[in-house]
Design a binder for these strands. Sequence first.
DNA 1: TTTCACCGACCGTCTGTCGGTCGGTATTAT
DNA 2: ATAATACCGACCGACAGACGGTCGGTGAAA
Lengths: 215, 215
Amino acid sequence: MRVVKEAEARRNEILDAADELFGQKGFDGTSTNDILEKVSIARGTLYYHFKSKEDIMNALIERYNTRILGTAKVIAADKSIPIIERIVRVVLSMNVSGGSENQIMEHIHKPQNALMHQKIQKIIINGVTPIMTEIIREGIAKGLFSTPFPYECMEMVVAYTNTVFDDDMVEMNNEERTSRIQAFVFNTERLLGAESGSLTDIMQMFGSENGGNNE
Amino acid sequence: MRVVKEAEARRNEILDAADELFGQKGFDGTSTNDILEKVSIARGTLYYHFKSKEDIMNALIERYNTRILGTAKVIAADKSIPIIERIVRVVLSMNVSGGSENQIMEHIHKPQNALMHQKIQKIIINGVTPIMTEIIREGIAKGLFSTPFPYECMEMVVAYTNTVFDDDMVEMNNEERTSRIQAFVFNTERLLGAESGSLTDIMQMFGSENGGNNE
DNA sequence: TTTCACCGACCGTCTGTCGGTCGGTATTAT
DNA sequence: ATAATACCGACCGACAGACGGTCGGTGAAA
């Protein structure tokens, strides 16, 4: 049957379907036919809205991009939140993505979606780092931190969390995870030249993020 | 024409061809036909030696694995080399891979080979980190370094260098690269609790690695 | 005569293309 | 105001081309 919609509405339908399918079966594992069936459109329609399958992925990433960085920016700019808490929240917003759709990132970390994962990681490293750095500079001004290389510091922190914590890159049981987080907090304090123990609050929130989402 | 060879010889021919082709055109961009033509064998022969295209990639990665970690282990175990120099050499061995085939890793860092890259990165992080950690412990015993978390420290260092320096993950011009290395050395010193400036030698060797290979 | 490396025709599935169709909307004539 | 017309954006589905993987069969060496 023939159903006509506005281009943007249709585009989003396709993206929503692709989002779910890529999450379940990976990019390579999802055929364009899978998407067609899910949206109930014909082949030509898909290629009317997107020029290729990879184009769909790029559009999806663009959506993630906007959401993730948008959320991070809002949090980072809210100077009413204490600096350290703001840092924690920005870090968390990278994984949970802020809103009701908290299963966005969960799918990404699978061996199947390597390319998508790589592209998102690139966006996070190059997008989140400057946002975090701004907070760090604030902290330096207030005497909380002390480093001549705030940007590179945060780049290291962001790159590390994104490879080791977000992935199946390093396999850990809960115990190893806990010690990894302890060490991470300690190391971050050293990198930032923060007083020992001043970031320990981070650990708790990290821990709860893993166990289960409470709001 | 029909040419018969020992299975292992043929396997290596196929791997060599795949290595070069994947490097040039990426994994997805290389068809099995490309490999067949290059090796001058028939379809069935390829699938006699490998059960799938991905199997070829995994065998390739296994080769890298052996070479990279093998080289790293040899260097790390040579206690005649001063600790800091050993660290530098291990880091370098990750990129140059030791021997005459120094173009192995160059191809990997392309958006096309995302899956292969991810798998190799996993091997490096989980394989090189313990090797490096051993050296660090030696350094701690000698009073050069001081950290309660040597493993997690090195994990951070290895993960960072592999994402930021080895990739097109972060685009940098030479100037940015230089400052990135300066900061990296500084940060690593902090992480390891090393005396400021004690690792500066690293910077020089890193610099030469980029410019051109001498020996 | 058994075994091992090899062959190449063939299959199903995939992505992407292309000529053509349909329905709503703006425009014009009545 | 209403009807005829022209237009265009959204949609369709048959099709082409290429790909990864299979299988029954072949030839040479052991």
